[in-house]
Structures are given as C-alpha cells and as structure tokens.
Nucleic acid binder design. Structure first.
Lengths: 336, 336
DNA sequence: CTGAAAGCGCTAACAT
DNA sequence: ATGTTAGCGCTTTCAG
C-alpha cells in the first residue's frame, strides 16, 4: 500500500498533454471550444495520471456552492432515516454531495452541528430542527438558504406533515371506540414538537374529556416504557394511550406486557410514524403515517428550486398524514 | 427574508478592525502571536459582520483535508444507521464534517457514490462496500485512505465482525436443538457477503447435514417473505430457517404466519443483526448481534489514527459477534 | 507581535 | 480553437 495520496491536478494533465489548464477545465465540464482530438488526448492523459476533479476547489472558484447540507436529530429513528432516503432520491446524480450533520445528543446543544454545516459552505441546508426556537431557525436562514422539514417555520421554506390533523385523527379514533381515559405520552417539550400534544388536548376537551399528558425523557423505546409504566400504575389507569411516536408506543407496549396487561383488550395503543415494525404480525400497532420518505423527497425538490431561484416566494408544503388502523386498538373492556 | 447570502470574509473583518488578514486567520485558529486586545477586537468585529470561517477554503489552502467520507448501502437498514451513529461518536466535535454518500439503488452501480466522495476531497473514506470486488476496493484505497467496515479487505484497514463465527453459532444452535432440515435464506450474491452462507454450509456438512440455500432478491423484509414462502412450499419443508439478516427473518416470519405455521413450534427462525425489533415482546427473534454501533465506533477511531499516521501498519480489527437466543427457536415438532 | 506575498486547484472573463 | 490573467477565501513561510 503506497501512501502518495496527492492526486494529480489539472495542471499536471495540461502539462502532460501540452495544452493550457483552461482547456482541461473546459474539457471536463463539456464546455464548448475544445476540439475532439484535444479532448481525447486530455481524457487519456487524465486517466493515465489518475486525475480526479476537485469539487471543493471548483466550488470555491465558482460563486455558487453546490453541496446540500442535511441536518437531522437522530438517524436511528426510522423517520429521519426515511427523510434522508427521500432527500437522496430527489437529488440528481451529479449533485450528490450531501453533507450530513447529526446532532450529537438529543438534549445537548445542536449548536455545533448546524454551525459546521455552514462552515462547510453548503449551498443550502435541509434541516429537521427541533431544539431550536423558530427565531433561531429564521436567523440561520438568513445566513444560508434553509428548508425546514417536519416543522413549519414562518418565513422559511417549510415541508411538513399536518401534525394537528394526525393527532386529532388518532385521538378521535380512540374516542370513537368508546375510550374516555385516554392518555398522551409525549416527548420532552421542545419548541418544535408541541403540535401533537396540543391537538390531542384540544380534541379531548372538545369531546368533553379530560386530557392526561406525560412527557417521556426522550423519544426512545426505553423512555416510553418507563413513562408508560408510571401511567399504568395510576389508580384510575388510562384504557388507551396515544404516543408521540412509534418508539414510545412500542415502549408502552412492553410496559403493558410487563404489567400483565394485554393489548388491545386491556389497553389500546396508538403510535405515530407508521414505522415498518408497527406492521408486523403480533405487533399490529395502529399508527399515524406522516409519510416521511415523501417529506424528504419534497424537501429535496424544494431545496433545488430555492437554489435555482433565490427570489421565489417562500414555499409551504403541507402533507396530510394518514391514520393506519391495526389491531392494537379496540373498545375499552366492559366496566366491571 | 433577504437574500444576501454572501457571508463576510477574513479580509472584511481585517478591514473593519484595521489589521491584516493574517491576524484574523491566526486569531481564529488560536495560533500564538496575537495580542489579547487585538483578538478581542477581531472577534467582536467578526461577530458584528457575521463572519463564519470557511472550512472548505481552509482545507484547500492547507495541505491536508479534514472531512471524513462515509459510504453506506442502505441507511434504512438499522445496521447501517447504527454504524453511522457509531462513527459519529468517534469523531471529535471540531472534526464533524462527515460527508455521507449512500448508494442509490442496492443493485445499481454505486460507482458514482464512492466517486463523488473522492471528488469532494475527503481526507479519508469509511466504506461499507458490498457490490465492489476486493480488487476495486484496494484500488480505491490507493487514491484516498480508506477503511473498510463490515468486511475485511486484504491490505486495507478493516473493521468487521466475525461472520463465520456468527453463522456457525447460529447454525449450531439450530442443530443442537435437534433440527436437521435447516435452510439458509441468503441475500443476493455479492463479493462482499458470502461468508455467512459459506460458514453455514460448512457447519451443516460438518454435522453430516445437507445445506439448503435460497437467495432473496435483495435484503428487505418483502424479499424475505417471498423467498421464505417458496421455501415453506416445498414438500419436505425445512423446520428451521437461518437468514442473512433480521429483515429477511422478519419477512420469513410473516410468510410462516401467512401459511398458518406458528413460530417456533412449527418453524424455528434465526436472524442476524439483533435489531431493536427482534427484542420486542411477541417477536422474540433469536439473532446474532454483530455490534454494529461498536463497529462504527472502531472504524471512526481507526480512520482518525490512519489520518494522523499514514505509515502505520494496516489495521485489522475483528469483533466477535454474539448469538442472542430468544423464543423464536425451539426443538422441531415431533415427527408424526 | 504584525504584515507582505505566494499559493492551494479550479473557474471565468478576456484575449489571441 | 486555445492561451492569459485574475481571482475564490484561506494558510503559511518569511521579513519587519
């Protein structure tokens, strides 16, 4: 294994062929003004020398920056992985410089993560912010074009799912089944994620029911299990739980089984995300599908549009979620 | 929303303060030789002007490249998400320019994906290759430092799990339970992923049993379900299936239920990856844990070491997998 | 402590 | 059709 990792430059190629640097640059970008013969010679020499274009230097020389930055909270959460996946499919082949930045810890500062993206001089950032205030996101958007995904931010390109509608559908589904003691298992309170719980509370009150909310320490299954255990230890325990996401719901499910309660006969459960796991036989979790992949795809498209037209009006793309009913929900057990 | 996205440069700051560009550069890197007063003045001016360091230009000017490239197949697969997560934790705060490249389609060419990473001039690439031949990986490693993760490549820094041992443990577990008709559900045949099936076949033969292999179209649950359906339609159907990964196993599980077969009484199932889903109540899938997060972590560390010492001997870090026995495996039904 | 000058690899007018 | 000449924003000797 040799270690001469300094790759050849355009000048090297130019020298080899006996032409100027410019010609090489033109040849590689398919710009007009290079004879076919010269082009051939250049490509051959390039190949011989192992020349590779330097996209970074090109970006620097050009006014415009071509990389797309993606900021996500937690890549292990299927929702974010799906968003990433969607963004990727929206980006054309040659534009695949996707710089990823994942926040280090969910409750730590994600200062650095977003900052590093702007230091990397990406042309645009697609961000699933959560911890930051809308104000801060707006500020950021002044520094570098930004499209907010999963969360609407006034004055900033936004691509999101209608969380209010999703939470309402979930809650109404439970109410419709006859439940009255319906709890909501939320995540920690952040600026960006309060719509679902608010919608839940409003729907409950509109139905003349009393909201019962508990916030988990984070968005993981373990946190969900701990919080749900608490919920299920109440004297008048809820007969149904609607959770902020599927991971919390799966945690609640474990908590129920640990307590010897079966789902759905003794506890109805509704999650959010419609992750792949929720559809498995034996899990069959009723869940709200927010169409994460589609969200990512649209965000990618919006980003591309913004890049090509900075003056276009602010985009606001709202996707409608869909309640997927499975067998983790049923009417409450007859009161004994 | 204004659109003056051209950020301030070091010269702007220098001009504002009334010093030379160099000073500003020094100040921001904490290099010695700048008086505290000047430093203060510079930072204030920078803040006022909204100056942000340009990491890309810095890399260009410096000899060395600081970004880390990560090449993965499919981010929706928990294993790869975990690897990413592990790599991230290994990278220090200030070194968080992680450029991600995901292969577009699993059976398409991933030519472009790896190529784009080297055009982005990353300092090192951490790659979970699969489709490429070892030869090609070695070639790539000559162009840019590369550490291969999940797969050993001779002559290249490698971090991987002992697949032979994992597959053997899984197969022996099944044999130990008394199964004789044990099938292996593999993924498509690629250079990088044949160890598990080979180890399975060898273990079977060593026990005097006949291997029965079937390759799914890809590594997804759906493909697993289709392939398993075929397997379970045989006249002398297997009493146990060991799959290449958990997704295939979950697909097989669905196939079994669709056929009215229950797990484990009529079919034993062993997966690979020990994904979070496999531990859920009602799923309880016996699986081999390859410690993906740890793999990513080690890969990140190895990458950092390689960067700081190009002449160090080639790293070969093998992690030992662990069979996690749950209730998807049991002795075969008594022959009737 | 501070500044001038050269250069990283490439692009983009502007010549010829 | 091909070459010249400036930069892009930053780092880094080498002199003051």
């Amino acid at each position: 294994m040799d270690h001469r990792h300094r790759s050849a430059t355009q000048s090297d190629v130019a020298k080899e062929v006996g032409v100027s640097r410019t010609l090489v640059s033109f040849a590689f970008r398919g710009a007009p003004g290079v004879s076919d013969e010269t082009k051939q010679a250049i490509f051959e020499a390039a190949k011989r020398l192992g020349y590779r274009p330097n996209a970074v230097a090109a970006d620097l020389a050009r006014k415009h920056r071509s990389a797309v930055g993606l900021y996500l909270m937690d890549i292990r959460n299927e929702v974010y992985a799906d968003i990433l996946s969607g963004v990727r499919t929206a980006l054309p082949q040659d534009r695949n410089r996707l710089i990823l930045s994942v926040s280090r810890s969910i409750d730590g500062e994600d200062q650095g993560a977003l900052e590093s993206l702007i230091e990397a001089r990406v042309g645009i950032i697609i961000a699933a912010t959560l911890l930051d205030s809308e104000e801060r996101v707006r500020e950021l958007a002044h520094i570098v074009p930004l499209v907010s995904v999963t969360r609407p931010v006034e004055g900033v390109d936004s691509v999101y799912s209608d969380d209010a509608a999703g939470a309402r559908a979930a809650t109404e589904h439970l109410i419709g089944l006859g439940h009255t003691r319906i709890a909501h298992l939320a995540g920690p309170v952040y600026d960006g994620h309060t719509v679902r719980r608010q919608s839940y509370a409003k729907t409950m009150r509109d139905a003349g029911l009393k909201p019962l909310m508990l916030a988990a320490e984070d968005f993981t299954q373990d946190a969900g299990q701990r919080a749900a255990t608490e919920l299920l230890s109440m004297t008048e325990r809820p007969t149904a739980i609607f959770t902020h996401n599927d991971q919390l719901a799966l945690g609640a499910r474990e908590a129920a089984y640990a307590k010897g309660l079966s789902v759905p006969s003794e506890l109805s459960l509704v999650g959010y995300d419609n992750s792949r796991t929720s559809g498995l036989h034996g899990i069959d979790l009723t869940s709200v599908d927010l169409h994460a992949t589609e969200l990512g795809q649209i965000a990618g498209t919006v980003a591309l549009e913004r890049l090509s037209n900075p003056e276009a009006p602010v985009a606001d793309r709202r996707v409608t979620p869909k309640l997927v009913v499975r067998s983790s929900t049923a009417p409450p057990a007859r009161v004994t």
